[in-house]
Amino acid sequence: MKKALVLDNVRFAHGGSEMHFDLAVEAGEWLAVIGPSGAGKSTLLDLVAGFAAPSAGTIAIDGRAMAGVAPAERPLSIVFQDNNLFPHLDVFHNVALGIAPDLRVAAADRRRVEAALDAVGLAGFGKRRPAEMSGGERQRVALARVFLRDRPLLLLDEPFAALGPALRREMLVILTELRAGRAEPPAIVMVTHHPEDAVGHADRTAFLDAGEIAAIGPTRRLLAGDDDPRVARYLGTIAPGERP
């Protein structure tokens, strides 16, 4: 099966310690990434996106080696917690940046932007500025933009962390619906501090600990915490120092 993302023996020195990642994500798969603070979750995304360079190993996206490929040239999209919207642009043009970086929007592209806004429940919001919108609405704008770009890999770096539980669930449903509307949905790698966000959405979940993928497997099984005591301690199903 085609791989959307492969990290092969990737190493990265950080703060006097070395991180080591081996990972393969199938095309169209949704992978959640959990783990304690400092485990390397955001570093993993930085390496894939090209914001950090590995000291060893190879990274391939959609079958293409990424060595020497600049972040802007990589076949992926990213949604951050701060949504990365431009405050001086209205919603329409923030979304249009996904397909028209120079903001020269042809008639056909205009229809695509409007359809993307409609898909995330923001029809009629095109002339608003980000400052005039709620946090959840701004994240909808960010999702509309990345799905308009139609890249094979989508990285989510805790984009819904600042939202309340109900709004986080709503955003995950929107994301699921956007993927379902694609003939070839993108693979997703989603970093989250809320393991419950993975349930019902992520096909697999990876647990990072001390700079490496300590456990990975089907989401419900891994989050049960029965197979690895480190996962159980992180989830709080067994106390620190307690034997499983």
Rank of each mutant, 00 (worst) to 15 (best):
L117C: 00
R149C: 07
V120M: 02
T176V: 07
A108I: 03
A162C: 06
T176L: 14
E196T: 09
D209T: 00
G217Y: 15
R110L: 02
R140V: 01
E132C: 06
V189D: 00
R151P: 10
P195A: 05
M171P: 06
E184C: 07
A123C: 01
V120A: 01
A116H: 02
I188K: 02
R111H: 06
A108S: 12
G217C: 10
G135N: 09
M171R: 13
R112V: 01
L178S: 10
A131Y: 05
A198G: 03
R230N: 09
L167V: 13
R145G: 05
L178Q: 12
P218A: 09
R129V: 05
L222I: 02
A115H: 09
G135A: 12
A198Q: 11
L153Y: 04
V191I: 13
A144D: 03
D150P: 04
L148V: 01
L117W: 00
M171T: 09
D228S: 15
R220N: 14
L222H: 07
T176F: 11
V173F: 13
F125E: 10
R129T: 04
R169V: 13
T176I: 12
K127L: 12
D227R: 15
R128P: 00
G200L: 01
P152L: 12
S134V: 10
E114S: 01
L175D: 10
R179V: 01
D157T: 08
R104F: 02
M190K: 06
T219N: 11
G211W: 07
A115K: 07
A183W: 00
Q139W: 03
I213H: 07
A116T: 00
I213V: 14
P195G: 06
D150K: 09
A187Q: 05
V120Y: 03
R112Q: 08
A232Y: 10
M133G: 11
L143C: 02
V191P: 01
G225C: 13
A198I: 12
V173K: 15
M171I: 06
V191R: 05
V146L: 02
R110V: 07
Q139G: 04
R129I: 05
E114Q: 12
A107N: 06
K127P: 08
R112S: 01
E170V: 03
L156F: 03
F125Q: 02
R112M: 01
D209C: 04
A183D: 12
G136H: 13
L163W: 07
P229M: 11
D227F: 11
R104D: 10
A232K: 08
